[in-house]
Simulated scan of single mutants.
Amino acid sequence: MTILILGLLLFLGAHSVRIFAESWRTRMRARLGENGWKGVYSLVSIAGFALIVWGYGLARQAPVVVWVPPTGMRHLAALLTLFSFIFIAAAYVPRNGIKAKLHHPMVLGVKVWALAHLLANGNLADIVLFGAFLLWAVLDFRAARRRDRHTGAVYPAGTVSGTVVTAVAGIVAWAAFAFWLHAKLIGVHPFLV
């Protein structure tokens, strides 16, 4: 569990700089240059992600069961992750109505993904992993909305075509992950009981 926690601290710590230390981030970007900052940020993030994967894998070998979720929670989680994938797609597809309305769909996608997995999993490692991501997403969304208000950010209006492309991209990515990649990469098939 120590490796998982260390990975979470590195990965989410790097992704929390704008939440807790915006002025420090600005100074470091000026000192290191844009590419230097991105390089350090990327290295810390990759190291953290690798430790998360390794630590979570180790923790799953000796699971500590905290609670056993009802079977229905897996179905709810599958539905919630569908929305999560659509939100994440909305972060990248230009001029879609979802981003125009929600402003920070990537963070909302992470929030919904983490909540879905907390509902469907009751092992200690799952609670630590998904709980950490959910807490981070809540704090990051709040900080991003505060920055938007402070800067007077205006998001471009979405178009019907952009919104349709976003929904289709999210659904296709969700289906590929839910029916194939999740079992292949994580070792758990979301739809098998």
Rank of each mutant, 00 (worst) to 15 (best):
K38C: 05
R25L: 13
G97R: 08
T81G: 00
T159L: 15
L185H: 10
A89W: 06
G131N: 11
F179Q: 10
H189P: 04
F141T: 05
F133K: 08
V172G: 06
G187Y: 08
A183W: 11
L118D: 06
L6W: 04
R18K: 05
V53I: 15
L10Q: 00
L135I: 12
A14V: 03
G39K: 09
V164N: 13
L82I: 10
V164T: 12
L8N: 02
A30W: 04
R145Y: 06
W136L: 08
R31P: 03
Q61C: 09
A178M: 15
L115A: 10
L108A: 01
F191I: 05
G55E: 12
G109F: 00
I98F: 05
L51A: 14
V17H: 00
V66Q: 04
G162P: 14
I5D: 04
W54L: 15
H182G: 05
V168P: 05
S45N: 08
G36M: 12
R149L: 14
N121G: 10
I19R: 03
A173D: 08
V138A: 09
L51Q: 08
V17S: 05
N96Y: 03
Q61A: 14
V40G: 09
H189V: 06
L80M: 15
L79H: 02
I88T: 05
L102N: 01
H103Q: 09
F49I: 11
W136N: 01
V168L: 15
F83R: 05
V53A: 15
L76K: 00
V66E: 02
I98T: 01
D126G: 09
L10V: 03
R25S: 07
L76Y: 00
G122K: 01
V164C: 12
L8T: 00
V165G: 07
T71C: 00
W180C: 11
V40F: 14
L192H: 06
V93N: 00
G122H: 03
H150I: 13
N96L: 01
A175R: 00
I19S: 03
R27M: 07
A59Q: 12
V128S: 15
F20W: 14
F177P: 01
L129G: 10
F133A: 09
S16T: 02
V68S: 01
V168T: 06
R146D: 12
V40M: 13
G33W: 09
D148T: 10
A30S: 11
G187M: 11
A89T: 00
V40T: 03
V44S: 09
G36I: 08
G97F: 09
R147A: 13
A114W: 04
W113F: 14
V193W: 06
A125E: 15
